[in-house]
Every structure is written in C-alpha cells, then in structure tokens.
Amino acid sequence: MTRTANVGEAVAPLLELTDIHYAYREGIPALSGLSLSVFPGERVAVLGANGCGKSTLLKLLAGLIFPRQGSYRAFGRKIDERLLSRDPFGIFFRKDVGILFQNSDAQLFNPTVEDEIAFGPLQMNDPAAEVRSKVQRAIEAFGIGPLASRAPYELSGGEKKKVAIASVLVMDPQVLLLDEPTAGLDPRSSRALVDTIVEAEKKGKTVVTATHDLHIVSEIARRVVVFGEDNRILASGTPEEILTNRSLLLAANLVHLHRHAHDDYWHVHEHEHHEIVHFHEHPDESPGGGSKR
C-alpha cells in the first residue's frame, strides 16, 4: 500500500502490518487478521474498548512482541526478533521508535527520575556531557525539575506519566507509540500532553496513540482506527467521520446508552466515560421527548 504525497510522488508506509494474528494464550486472540499502514509524519489514534488489542498493537509496532502469523515491516525492513537483537538496524529501530506504556510503573525502573531520563541516551552511548544536557533539556521541557532527584515510588500517578513521557522523548524518536497517555492525568497535564503530540507532528514525527478518551482524538489524530471487541479493525477514517458515527461508537463499546434525570423527566442518550469531563448531549429538549418519572 502506498499513499500519494502533495507533490505527486508515492509515499511508502513507515510501519506496515499485514494480516497479523497474535494471542497471549491459545484460543484467546489479542489481534485477529489485522492489517494497518502508518505513513511518515502521520498522527493516528487507535480507539477501542478495554481488551480489544490496542496495547498489543503498540507493543507489536515497537518490536517488543512478534506476530504468530502475518508480517510487520518498518522503515522498509521486515521486522523480526533476530533483526532487532542481532542486526545494527536494531539499535536504529530502538532509538527511533519510542513507546509509552500504559503502566508507568513498568517503565520507571531506575532509582531516580534523572537516571530514568538518562537511561535511553546512555544506552545509545552518548557522551556524558551530551547525556546530561539532554536530561536537563527534557526535565525543563516537562517542568519536572523539582522531581529530578526523587525515586519513582515517591511520585504521584500523573508525575510518573510525565517522567515516563520525558524518558521516551529524550531519545528524540521519529515514531511515538503512546498507550493511554492521558489516563490518570489531571486536565492541565492532559492538555500539555496533547500539545506535545501536536508539536511532534510539526517536527515530522509519526505518532500512534491508543486511547479510549474521545475528547482528545480530534486534536491528536488525523486518522482514527477503531477496534471492535472481536480484536479486529471495525472502521478507519478522519476524526470527524468516526466521532459523528454514533452507531459505530456504540458497536465498539466506546459510548453507551445513559439514562439521565431532568426534573421530572428521564432522557436516554449516548454517553462516554472519562475521568474529568462528563460529555453528553440531549437530543430532545421537550419533556415529551423523555419519559415521565
């Protein structure tokens, strides 16, 4: 699959999955026959309910797990375990593909925040002065100066997330894979993260974000891929196309019918959950549209 760029030449996908099947246990598939192409500089949101395979997809794209069936190509190379562990391309791949885990505790394994951020550049054998300067810049960019000498267990959930993001971005990866990046973040931190993703696009980075937070989708993505509960892709389109397709969102378990009381009347309408914002609309304003309590 190729895409045509503005100037007319064909652009090959940067990441390309073809007919991928993956199961953690026999008989319980996490991904079934998935095909997906991500183009350079694209911002893609992967939407889906819990357990639909979003995290598995990101781990697969990050070359951390490998499909049982199907093929994965990245940067024009067929990705397999041997290539990433034995070939010098593996170093390039690890440097250029950054993944933010859903569970920040898994990602923060160093004694202090400073060590955490320095981990990636040190693995790349950057000179000590350059490592320090990169760490300092990342700390300043995320406003986590006061946390620099703290241990991960001394951080709140939101702080852990920020440190985890800083520890990924310090590597300056070309591909960012973000697994539920706004989960557990307060509105301001969530906003800052959305800005970071938008900024990443300006720098030409490719961002794939797995989320079920519909509020941020139109900002963080130009293309949305919706996963069904059967671990297959249900639909793909622009944020406007997807977010206005109520039946699709209902089928994907991203919104549900909600009964809501107004004085003496009950309304029934679609509704989605999010930690901070409670979003819904009322299709009928007249009491007659609802049912008498």
Partner: peptide, 11 residues
C-alpha cells in the same frame, strides 16, 4: 513489562 520497557529504550 519492565523487560520490554528496557528493550524499547535500547537496553
């Protein structure tokens, strides 16, 4: 998961 996170960052 930790092992994956370490690999992802070049360990």
């Amino acid at each position: 998961e930790v092992s994956m996170a370490m690999s992802a960052r070049g360990f």
